[in-house]
């Protein structure tokens, strides 16, 4: 059985999602045949989220066993997550870069110069994302960097989601970005970026 997350009370779960009571927590479980891959588990979590079910999601890649979920639920760490995440979802923001051709210099100096340029572009994207998210005054995840762009997640309540999306768009219009950079906002998603089960304080506000 694959654990999708934790909820409380007797939530109404969508088809294909089962529940197991564990003290004050209700562990949301999927049949292994319906949750073989991380994408399958994410799809089920999105279905739960879209049906207005409040829950703390497990990272889909983890494929957490029920026994492990029980251990985690006894640590007390979930209480803090529940207070932070209940009634909320996340927007995922991407600053994507269109790269025409990857630079593959053969000499050491050219290679180092190319890395210097990449570092400058990365810092510029960091600054742009920072400009967009700072005024939201909402919790955001640390920026993630990939070869195609820079990404972060913003936590927001369901009730304010429309306003937050509009504000992100408004802020995006104000920043001065190069022509090869585009902004993408998707959501609302389950707050996966904020649901680390380790007692980490990665979220900034």
């Amino acid at each position: 059985m694959s654990v999708l997350g934790w909820s409380r009370g007797n939530p109404v779960a969508p088809a294909g999602v089962y529940q197991r009571r564990d003290g004050p927590w209700t562990v949301l479980i999927a049949d292994p045949s319906a949750a073989q891959t991380a994408c399958d588990r994410l799809a089920l979590q999105v279905r739960c989220f879209d049906s207005s079910l409040d829950f703390i999601p497990v990272a889909p890649a983890q494929n957490l066993a029920v026994s492990d979920a029980t251990d985690i639920s006894q640590t007390g760490h979930l209480d803090r997550l529940w207070r932070m995440l209940t009634g909320r979802g996340q927007f995922s923001i991407a600053l994507a870069v269109q790269v025409s051709q990857p630079l593959c210099p053969q000499d050491g100096r050219g290679w180092l110069r190319a890395r210097q340029v990449q570092q400058e572009q990365r810092l510029a994207r960091d600054a742009m994302l920072q400009d967009i998210t700072t005024r939201l005054n909402l919790p955001i995840t640390p920026h993630r960097h990939g070869p195609r762009g820079t990404y972060c997640d913003v936590l927001t309540g369901h009730a304010k989601a429309h306003d937050v999306r509009a504000m992100i768009t408004r802020m995006a219009h104000k920043i001065n970005a190069p022509a090869n950079v585009s902004l993408t906002v998707t959501g609302l998603w389950p707050p996966l970026g904020f649901a680390s089960h380790a007692p980490a304080a990665e979220v900034t506000k």
Binding site: S92, A94, A96, V97, M128, R144, G146, R148, G149, Y151, I168, T169, A172, H173, K174, I175, N176, A177, V181, S182, L183, T184, V185, T186
Partner: peptide
Amino acid sequence: MNQSRTQDTAQAQDI
């Protein structure tokens, strides 16, 4: 900055 889209390959790749 004038693009705000709901789907993008880069973000899909990130996910």
